[in-house]
Structures are given as C-alpha cells and as structure tokens.
Computed example of a mutant assay.
Amino acid sequence: MRLLRRLLLAVSLGSTLLLSGCGSVDIDDYQGTQPTLVLSRFFDGQLTAHGMVQDYQGKVTRRFVVTMTGQWRDGVGTLDEAFVYDDGETQRRIWTLTELDAGQYQGTAADILGVATGEARGSALQWRYQMLLPVDGDTYEVEFDDWMYLIDERTMINKSDINKFGVTVATVTLVIQKQP
C-alpha cells in the first residue's frame, strides 16, 4: 500500500504517468449475453467474496475476504459489506442500491461521493463512482470503474480500475459467490 500511496501522491502533484490505455469496451457489447444480471436477484441473501488489490504494475499488494448480506424491498436494496484484509485491517461499507428503469441502478454509501451509477446489459454491469479511499493514514478521492460479470447464478467476477486524474493507479479483482 505504500507504493499505492506514493503513486497517488505523485499523480495528485501533477506528475505525468503513462500507465494505462483507453478502453473501448461498452456496456452495450453485453446486450443479450446470459445469464442476465439483475442486482436484486444476485445480491440478495448471504454472499462471500475473495479479492486482491494490484498496483499499477500488476503486483498484488493486498488480499481480502468480504462477507455480504443483501436485502431488497420495492426496488431498493441494502448491501452490508464487511471486509477483512490480509494484514488484519477491517472495513465496513453499507450500500443503499436503487433499481431504476431499463437496467439502470444508483447507489450510495458513507465513503462514496455523490451517487454511484450503474448500467446492466445481459450478464454484465458497469458501475462508476467516486470514493474516499483510505491509504496508509491518508484519504484520497479516486474514481472507480467497476465491471461485474455474472458467470452463473451463484458466481460473479468483479474487476475495478481505481483512477486518479484519469490514470489507473490500482486494480481490484473479486470473485463473489452466493451462499446456499
């Protein structure tokens, strides 16, 4: 995480970093793919995720496990996430998710700036938001570009790019599984 902190600081001071290219994937590319991802169906009940954080060079800097509980009522869901990192640090995030029309979603949480927005097509969802990210005692404003892919009714893969000033400074990968 020290490397991530130094990188975030360097980017925030205006250093030029040529670390990432422009992506060309669009959520509409997943129209019609199966199984169809519906957040209120997948994020309902008990879930467990295993994940890792990679720095801009691809080196794994942290690993973690998340236990989640999701509940939905009338198109509004609560997703309670409890993180435990490999160094013993814990975090908790409680999302309030709202299902809008035509695969559109919004979400809020205490460390999310403004409103997260998401759009689902087929088996994929793109989720974008700004977040206050704690790193080694400091807090940074970063942007997340989340892509969630439903593999089957019980398994999802989530890949998130963490960006600062348009530059990818880290990537988070999770495998999320619904519990029986």
Rank of each mutant, 00 (worst) to 15 (best):
Q91V: 06
F144I: 04
V169I: 06
D152A: 15
D111M: 11
L125N: 03
K159A: 09
L113I: 03
K159D: 08
V142G: 09
L174M: 15
K159N: 10
L97M: 12
G166Y: 05
A109L: 02
L133D: 00
L125G: 08
L97Y: 04
V115L: 13
T108K: 07
F165T: 14
Q177E: 14
V169L: 11
L150G: 04
N163Y: 15
Y129D: 00
I94W: 01
Q126I: 13
T171N: 12
L174Y: 09
V84A: 08
S160L: 11
T155V: 14
A116M: 03
R93D: 00
D87I: 01
D138G: 06
I94A: 02
V135D: 03
Q126P: 06
G88E: 04
A109G: 05
A120N: 03
V135T: 01
E89V: 12
A82Y: 08
T139I: 05
Q104D: 11
G137F: 05
A102C: 12
I157V: 14
V135K: 02
R128N: 13
Y85E: 07
D136C: 12
E143C: 06
D138C: 06
Y149E: 11
L150D: 02
E89K: 14
A109E: 00
D111H: 13
Y105G: 12
V169R: 10
N163F: 15
A82N: 14
F83E: 04
Y149P: 04
A109Y: 00
L174I: 00
T155Y: 06
R93F: 01
D111S: 12
I162A: 02
L113H: 10
V169F: 05
M148F: 08
D161T: 15
M156H: 02
D138I: 08
L132V: 00
A102K: 14
D87L: 07
Y105Q: 14
V115R: 07
D86R: 10
F165W: 11
L100R: 15
S123Q: 10
Y105H: 11
V142S: 07
S160I: 13
I94H: 00
D136S: 13
V135I: 05
S123Y: 07
V115Q: 10
G107M: 02
Q177L: 12
G166S: 05
Q130W: 06
W147F: 09
D138R: 06
D136L: 13
I162Q: 02
Q91I: 04
G88C: 08
L113Y: 10
V172M: 09
F83T: 00
L97K: 02
S160R: 10
V172G: 01
G166K: 04
L174P: 05
D146Y: 02
W147Y: 06
I162C: 05
A116W: 00
T96W: 03
V167D: 04
I94R: 03
G166I: 03
R92G: 15
N163E: 15
T117Q: 10
L174C: 13
R128M: 10
D86Y: 11
L125C: 09
M148S: 07
I151K: 12
T117G: 08
R154W: 10
T139H: 01
L113R: 10
Q104I: 12
I176G: 03
Q91S: 12
D101C: 13
G137L: 04
T173A: 09
G114A: 05
R93G: 00
A102G: 09
T171Y: 08
Q177R: 15
